[in-house]
């Protein structure tokens, strides 16, 4: 996809390959209303082009961890321990203005419920163009042009039509792609994708994963991926964290964790995946074909 290489704005500051762009160090998240700690210490580092995945039980604190890194914890929740650094900057003392500067351009996110992040009364294309204008200082026409390129980059069939549409006119899968386009519009250094492809059918999911892989390779986008689908994590992530009840029970290189799991809960997740996975059929077939496997 040629336009992707041109997506990066010329004035964007290049990141060095080993620069730490997002670091969480023993981060704890506290629920002040119910007076309990929800996340009991999570640590990982992202460098350009690196992908870290979080898997685990529902309610284990994956989304709260993402929100903490974006400075958008829900009311009554607070970071009660550890530290978070974005491109070397400790977030604890950031003013709202500084956050506005960071969000979208340095750290960006896509969540599972796209509709709640877009304005229902503004055409979706204008919303993306607005992000581009504010974050990159592009002129109106330039911004529109780039927004259309982005809509094409996320494989929407008719970018010009979608540009003019409102959220209620788009299916869930289309909305999710619009949101991904908006999230990458200002060339973020870090992208957080929290169940971002869960609502998509697998053909569209594959296209989006390809797009993220392109951005990762070509412009060094660093990714934090939350997914309940171990196969997506296996395909995309360098490192994986397994969470259960606010605890990171296992963490390591993806191949190591998924092929040689140490913790009982990780083993259970893998067993559950395999019990209802295509692997059963495809691998049986591959064996029959004399060890022929699908392309990796």
């Amino acid at each position: 996809m040629t336009i992707l290489s041109e997506l990066r704005t010329p004035h964007a500051v290049p990141t060095l390959p080993d620069e730490i762009v997002l670091a969480l160090r023993d981060v704890r998240i506290y629920d002040q209303v119910n007076d309990r700690e929800i996340v009991h210490g999570i640590s990982f580092e992202l460098t350009p082009g690196r992908v870290v995945g979080i898997v685990g039980e529902s309610g284990s604190g994956k989304t709260l961890t993402c929100r903490a890194a974006l400075g958008i914890l829900p009311e009554h929740f607070a970071i009660s321990g550890g530290s978070i650094e974005i491109t070397g900057q400790e977030i604890a003392g950031l003013t709202p203005e500084q956050w506005t500067g960071l969000r979208g351009s340095t750290i960006s996110a896509v969540f599972q419920d796209p509709a709640s992040y877009l304005n229902p009364s503004i055409r979706v294309g204008s919303q993306i163009a607005e992000v581009i204008r504010v974050k990159t200082g592009a002129k109106r026409r330039q911004a529109r042009h780039r927004a259309l390129e982005l809509l094409a980059a996320v494989h929407l069939r008719n970018p010009a039509l979608v540009y003019e549409q409102y959220t209620f006119e788009l299916s869930g899968g289309m909305l999710q792609r619009v949101l991904i386009a908006a999230a990458i519009a200002a060339d973020p250094t870090v992208l957080i994708a929290d169940e971002a492809t869960t609502a998509l059918d697998v053909t569209v999911q594959a296209e989006i994963l390809d797009l993220l892989a392109d951005l990762q390779e070509r412009i060094g986008l660093a990714l934090l991926v939350v997914s309940h689908d171990l196969a997506v994590v296996a395909q995309l992530c360098d490192e994986v964290l397994v969470m259960r009840e606010g605890e990171v029970v296992e963490q390591g290189p993806t191949a190591e964790v998924l092929h040689n799991p140490k913790h009982e809960y990780t083993r259970m997740l893998i067993a559950e995946h395999e019990q209802y996975g295509l692997e059963r059929y495809l691998e049986a077939e591959a064996d029959r074909d004399g060890g022929l496997t699908r392309a990796g």
Partner: peptide, 16 residues
């Protein structure tokens, strides 16, 4: 295309 797009734990989806 549909089956080839589904990632699996070991072999990944069909090649791009």
């Amino acid at each position: 295309l549909l089956i080839g797009s589904a990632p699996t734990l070991r072999s990944g989806a069909a090649s791009r």
